[in-house]
Amino acid sequence: MVFSYFPGCTLKTKAKDLDLYTRKSAEALGITLEELPDWQCCGAVYPQAKDEIATKLSSIRSLASARDLGYSLVTVCSACHHVIKRVNHDMQTDEDIVLRANNYLQLDTPYHGETKVLHYLEVLRDELGFDELAKRVKNPLTGRKIGAYYGCLLLRPSGEMQFDNPEKPTILEDFIRAIGAEPVIYANRNECCGGYITLENKPLAVKKASAVTASARANGADCLITACPLCLYNLKENAEGDMPVYYFTELLAEALGVK
């Protein structure tokens, strides 16, 4: 199993753990992640306006580069995944964007959304299989009660993300079971933590992040896992109380005995 890998800026700086444990767990599982040689920042938010072209170009460069290498493109940060997946969707469906982006980029072969974009969780679920993952676990996290925090970006808009049922997702819970722990279902797992607003309106970010941790705590979670560096920051730094929050890859590496 070989994939092109798009780590993203935050994983090179503040979220090094997310990157490190992704690579270590992949290695332990026999998944080869080849970092794209010329990746650029995805822009961190998906530009929704139909006339925003320039802000999508860096994602398209990465997508085209993965296509030329012949691999599916794997991301791990929720925000990168969201942006790249949706830009790819535009390149598959919006003729105007396709035309103007290709006119601008002047690639050797115009890009039309050929690359398959996968989140690392999707690789574990659909390519490796959670049953197979469970078999590879060396240190099952037995007895740990873990709340999955999906946030917004992995799930919505479900029509484009095609990740899971946006209101009743199961992928992270299945992942938690596969590493031997017990998933805790709580209603705010797919509600916004307010991470994007932290610079603009910190009190709002505090309120929203606290609602998430309170909902998780009320349902018996010992800790949360996430795939998003901004969610992790917000839930750890801004939420009231101190609910431990981990990248899902960190617990994966722990269960595989490579932490």
């Binding site: 932290t198 603009e200 560096p229 920051y233 750890k236």
Partner: peptide, 19 residues
């Protein structure tokens, strides 16, 4: 003034993109 030690740059990039 808005920065703190753990703030991921994702937050800054996205704020510039949005605002």
């Amino acid at each position: 003034d808005l920065l703190d030690e753990n703030l991921p740059q994702q937050a800054i990039t996205s704020a510039f993109r949005k605002y």
